[in-house]
Write a protein that binds this DNA or RNA. Structure first.
Lengths: 338, 338
DNA sequence: ATAGGCTGTCGAAGCGCTTCGACAGCCTCT
DNA sequence: AGAGGCTGTCGAAGCGCTTCGACAGCCTAT
């Protein structure tokens, strides 16, 4: 293993000079710098992470806490995680992967041990038990998701309230008067996951403003669950012509069921999905959808975090504006000649 | 920040004693140990990771390199990643998330800096450019996936060759004589990803042994691509009654298309999938499938790695035996009364 | 010509921990 | 009763790096 001291000796300078070449924290003459850089290359030197962390009190690691549950919007999680890792690297940080399993203890452990300089939390509940810990430490953090009380916190999320509103609006403009919302699994609502409740909120209030009837039904993913849910919806509101789906694993089943029942999309019923772009495009009907900008969220989170670590930027809530892309699954409501 | 020295002082012992209490590397009297543990709790002491890494030359971190591509079998990746993180924690390790982006450089960086004690690589290609580096270092590593040459490497993977064989076997037993294989996207084969080629291998050789005709077609995910692929298959081999699908995002489209064409599953055609359990169960027809044991793979990988780190266990290739679960998508081939 | 200010480099102190050798005190065996 | 062996504890020496203060040498302004 090559050490700083060896590089220094090889270049004929002192250790501190090498250190300053590396960090750029003091000016170094061009000739010296080049000599040092040359030695570094020749010897294949890599600074020791532990020593660096100890001396500088900075690990250059960002902790990312992902939910343990693998049953929900998994591709989105993965995309965010990868965006976080990629973006972090461009700022010189590595990413430590924590699962939600340890819960608040993980926060304590990481904060206490100096393992990471900062944290990003995903899958935040409205009243998350990790929040007090975050507020009580001076370690910077960013949430992906929006808790009930955001004071003293930095959050990044899609504006799900606006997303809900946008979906209703689109359907209402097309003349739909009876709209059903296929939501996430009941457990998601019971856990008070912010995004689900906020979407619902947006849907409801905009529906009311526009005088549109709304029926919301949570739904586990999968074909069987969707079949049941759909039957119940059409039973209660036979006149339903618009659907908003916020559950990736219900999308394809819904389309299949509608087809099977002889309801044409978009002639008879319209479907709007809240899902990643890829799902919308690959579905059996190209879906009008509001995309979940996973990459953007991951990138934003890291950038806020790095800003905080550099002493720039304060607490702040960043809500990304939803964008609805019209594709082949929505159209004018059928005329009500019944 | 509380340090070891402070704990020592508080407990009235020397720093080394506290260290030995923590590591258990020397025997400590019960009374002393309890006093120290008490102090640790009272002061809320957490060992500093950097200092520890520096002094012991061990970071207690495992690096996990996941593919950057988010276009392929994503849920499987995520499940493996989470299993790795969870299992690692039970052995006292944390997980550093690296993306494939940096490629071989990431290996160099991590090895050189002592950031991690060991690595797990996913998405291994048959002739992966990272392999020489791994062989050239004494840092333990485990591959999830199987390269062409495994000498000097430890690998964990599903036995995809046996998986292919198993699928053909099952269909053949049921009397199917013309089988079509819907494979991963062409890019996957072009990249020479081991698992895809090995599955194909298993399929082909068993098919030959059993005197069954096999047609293999790569397929991008999604509805449109699947429609094209299916049309071509039925054109070339109208008598096809058995399908093997190895591409999660082709499963549902295939089922929908078959339904649409009036081919009943499993009465007219049988479908076997190679996919995670969840996909098989949630599909519109409960699929006979060989599960991809993501969790098990992640767990195994970590356990092998920890064994190596502890000086136990040598290089070894662990192939997990595939298990085929019969569900509702396969049945006897229709009698050939035409 | 000299004071004062830059620039570029160095030496040394220390970050918080692990680990090695030393050794005091006690027990057991002869 | 004394030698030898355990057991439990301590002190000190680093691990490889960052960073602070010091200072030599040079340039500019008076």
């Amino acid at each position: 293993m090559v050490t700083l001291a060896e590089v220094a000796q090889h270049a004929g300078v002192s250790a501190s000079t090498v250190s300053y070449v590396l960090s750029g924290k003091r000016s170094i003459s061009t000739t010296t710098r080049q000599r040092v850089e040359q030695s570094i290359r020749e010897l294949g030197y890599h600074p020791n992470a532990g020593a660096r962390a100890l001396a500088s009190n900075r690990s250059n690691i960002i902790a990312l806490m992902v939910p343990l549950r693998t049953d929900m919007y998994v591709p989105v999680m993965m995309e965010i995680a990868i965006a976080v890792a990629t973006t972090a690297r461009t700022h010189g940080y590595d990413v430590l992967l924590l699962t939600g399993e340890e819960g608040p203890d993980a926060v304590r452990r990481v904060t206490g041990s100096g393992l990471a300089d900062a944290m990003i939390l995903m899958d935040v509940e409205l009243d998350d038990e990790r929040l007090p810990l975050l507020r009580g430490t001076d370690q910077p953090s960013v949430l992906i998701g929006l808790p009930a009380d955001t004071t003293g916190l930095t959050c990044v999320d899609l504006d799900f309230r606006a997303t809900g509103a946008l979906c209703v609006e689109h359907l209402a403009m097309l003349g739909h008067r009876d709209i059903a919302v296929i939501g996430e699994a009941p457990a998601v609502y019971e856990r008070h996951t912010g995004f689900a409740e906020r979407t619902l909120d947006g849907l409801r209030s905009r529906a009311q403003e526009l005088g549109v009837r709304l029926l919301h039904r949570p739904c586990e993913g999968g074909y069987d669950a969707m079949a049941l849910t759909l039957a119940r919806i059409l039973d209660e509101r036979p006149g339903t012509t618009g659907f908003v789906v916020q559950n990736e694993s219900a999308v394809e089943p819904l389309l299949a069921l509608l087809r099977q029942q002889g309801r044409a999309v978009p002639e008879d019923v319209s479907v709007v999905a809240v899902c990643p772009e890829q799902v919308a495009v690959q579905a059996s009907v190209r879906l009008t959808s509001v995309a979940i900008p996973a990459q953007e969220m991951g990138r934003h989170a890291v950038e806020r975090l790095v800003a905080k670590l550099d002493g720039r930027g304060a607490d702040e809530v960043v809500l990304i504006s939803p964008e609805l892309t019209v594709r082949a699954s929505t159209g004018p409501a059928p005329s009500r000649t019944t």
